[in-house]
Nucleic acid binder design. Structure first.
Lengths: 260, 260
DNA sequence: GCGGCATGTGCGAATTACGCAACACTGAAG
DNA sequence: CTTCAGTGTTGCGTAATTCGCACATGCCGC
């Protein structure tokens, strides 16, 4: 048996990382960090100063504000990106999915309670959806998120649904745990998930899971478009396309039973 | 007067970030981190565990190894990238520079004693240079780096030259501080920098600085190619092209005296 | 010039993180 | 199979680290 997981977190490191993430949303000053974390200004200053010494932040000489150092983050991202070169691997599939559907195609992975968009090809139409790369959306109300959730074992899904905050974004957002659980059951049965204006009014999304060579679900692929083009009638047709391309991408990654 | 800069670094945060960066070069285990940092295994474990709790690392259930969480870093990068969307802004200029020169075009920014490649377009020729995105090279022996260095005030440059480690990579690398200082003077006068096989034998690079709306140098743009194509005779011609495109990119960013 | 308000810095107190030691488990060697 | 060496993980006492207070300093508006 593996030892139980401990919960002794290193306080300074935890606070420092939180401060770092605050700085990423724009510039921060010691006093802001201090207030947000409930600590003394001097402590916040030392954290920020250490982050700067390590190259993660820069300090404006005049305003004394701390801002993120884009170059550092690019460097960090460059290192991890080579390990999982999604944009390159998935690029062709995204383009195909966009061209076949006419809508914005996107690819996302799970990060805690969110799905993060890591690659996309925007639709050509005048009115087309545009999610920024790197942005995140809640799992429970996005098609990509639901595709990822439904792929898990039942027990894990149930536990998550019970404990996750199911915030409502539109009137159609599913906020009832029992409803969501049943909904995810049909997602699994269908092989694709639909976000029917649950995040943004007027926007419908369809997504399917991506499996790797060990049959693990590692990402989700989908399309997003206005309800005027992705209509209820054409939805099955779009879903077919999404599942087809998703299966091909899975196959490219070495997934075993991906029938083409 | 501004207060003097303090040097009280928060130890745990500093160690934690170092551990994080170790994990980015592949998976790490507590014992490795402990040995590298000269600390106890338990301490290293707590740092890694905290990093995992904050989403920066993942732990393999079987091997117990800690690996970076690409999604997290993508998210972080996404936030800073929107502030300075280099790939999008510079993409067109890079493509033009590549097409006009026939060589790999690249864009880099400074990060401590290195230049980091944040965007590029690889040349079409069978033999063409390929730097990975996010990788770094020393300032003193790369064209981009020298273009960035030469753009600073004289005093700053002199101080840096005197204290920086001028490691030799080829026989042509300039390792003598006084020589480098004079060399950077000519770079500034010329408006472009040349890396004449100072980093890699057989590779010549040419670069020029990019200015923002406040006339500050924020990046450098250049080309890299084999010495067989970027010959000494054609060098001025290539340099002209590089400076031209660099000036246009600067203008795009709002630089005032960028003469086109 | 004066008073709020910020950053940055000593310094003592005590919280926090560290190293030690031990346990559980794994894998390899005998 | 047994043993042994090595690793991940956790509890605990101690001591070093960090924290918050207080203050110096500079900045901006009134």
């Amino acid at each position: 048996m593996q030892p139980k997981r401990g919960q002794q977190l290193v306080q300074s490191l935890e606070r420092g990382l939180t401060a770092l993430e605050m700085a990423l949303d724009g510039s921060v000053r010691p006093s802001e960090v201090a207030e947000a974390l409930g600590i003394d200004r001097s402590t916040a200053y030392r954290l920020l100063y250490t982050l700067m010494a390590k190259g993660y932040l820069l300090q404006d000489e005049r305003t004394r504000e701390f801002t993120s150092n884009p170059a550092k983050f690019f460097q960090l991202y460059g290192k991890v990106a080579t390990l999982l070169d999604w944009p390159d691997v998935a690029g062709g599939f995204l383009t195909r999915l966009r061209d076949e559907s006419g809508e914005t195609a996107n690819l996302g992975v799970r990060q805690a309670n969110n799905v993060i968009y890591i690659a996309h090809k925007q639709g050509q139409a005048a009115l087309s959806v545009n999610f920024g790369l790197g942005t995140s959306r809640p799992l429970h109300c996005s098609a990509l998120g639901k595709a990822l959730l439904a792929a898990q074992p039942d027990a894990v899904t149930a536990e998550w649904v019970a404990s996750a905050p199911l915030t409502a974004y539109t009137t159609k957002t599913i906020t009832e745990p029992s409803l969501l659980k049943r909904h995810l059951g049909t997602v699994r049965a269908d092989g694709y998930a639909v976000d029917d204006e649950e995040t943004f009014a007027g926007v419908r999304c369809i997504a399917a899971p991506i499996h790797d060579h060990r049959q693990q679900v590692i990402a989700a692929l989908g399309i997003s478009g206005p309800t005027t083009r992705i209509t209820q009638e054409q939805l099955p047709h779009f879903a077919q396309t999404v599942m087809q391309v998703a299966a091909e991408l899975s196959a490219e990654l070495g997934a075993p039973n991906a029938d083409l």
